[in-house]
Amino acid sequence: MEFYMKLPRNKKEFALFMGIISIISVNIIAPLITCFEAGFHLYVYQDVLTVLPFIWLSVIAIVLLTYVPAEKLTAKIVSKGDSFQAHIVVNILCTVFMMSILLTVIGTWVGTRSITWEPIRMFFFKWPRNFAISLFVEMCIAQPIARLAIHRLHLRMDSKVNS
């Protein structure tokens, strides 16, 4: 029942779900990681705001790129009979794992507005922090809010059908 009520049922709902998660995530994760890199100053945050739309587009593209592989990896780890929470936690872990690998490099390129070897050279120093920040934001903030929004949408839609 939770799968039916708290997750998207069609492409339109998937777009809404992905939009909520990506907007929340990008607005928290990108400034936080940048501030850890360059310092917690107002001018650093203002600079992040100028590239945030481009980072958001990168995130959307990478979500679409990693969606199917993350679903397949999730299916290998959990079984059909496992709980909703188990499926969600494993799916978030798989998705954040794949996305954080790509965004540690691509996000740096977009944020610095230059393609260099630096994010690849420093990957193993920066990726664990980026993964931890992303995992926390996804598990504790973005995904719960998006699932709540979808759940309320489904309750509203189901009440219209029943009345």
Rank of each mutant, 00 (worst) to 15 (best):
I88L: 11
R147E: 13
V89G: 03
K126V: 01
L135F: 12
S100A: 06
A146Q: 05
A146K: 02
S134H: 02
L148N: 10
M139Y: 10
I141P: 08
F123G: 01
R121G: 00
R147N: 13
T95Q: 13
V105M: 07
F97I: 04
H154C: 12
C94A: 14
I133F: 14
V137H: 11
I92N: 12
F97E: 06
M98P: 02
W109V: 00
K126L: 12
T104G: 13
P119H: 07
R113K: 12
I145H: 02
L135S: 02
L153P: 11
L135H: 05
I106F: 08
V110G: 01
T116L: 07
E138M: 10
R113H: 12
A149K: 05
I101C: 10
T112R: 07
T116E: 09
I106T: 02
E118C: 00
D158M: 01
R156N: 12
I92S: 11
R129C: 06
K160D: 09
I106R: 00
R156L: 15
T116I: 01
R121F: 08
K126I: 03
V110M: 03
A149M: 09
F124L: 03
C140G: 07
V161T: 00
T116Y: 05
N91D: 15
K160H: 09
V96W: 07
A142V: 11
N162A: 14
Q143I: 14
L155S: 09
I92F: 14
L135P: 05
M98V: 11
R129H: 06
I92A: 08
I145Q: 02
G111D: 03
S100P: 03
E138H: 14
A132Y: 13
V110K: 03
T95R: 12
S114E: 13
L135G: 10
L153V: 08
I150M: 05
P119Q: 01
S134Y: 06
M122E: 14
H154A: 06
I115H: 07
M139I: 10
A142T: 09
K160P: 01
G107T: 04
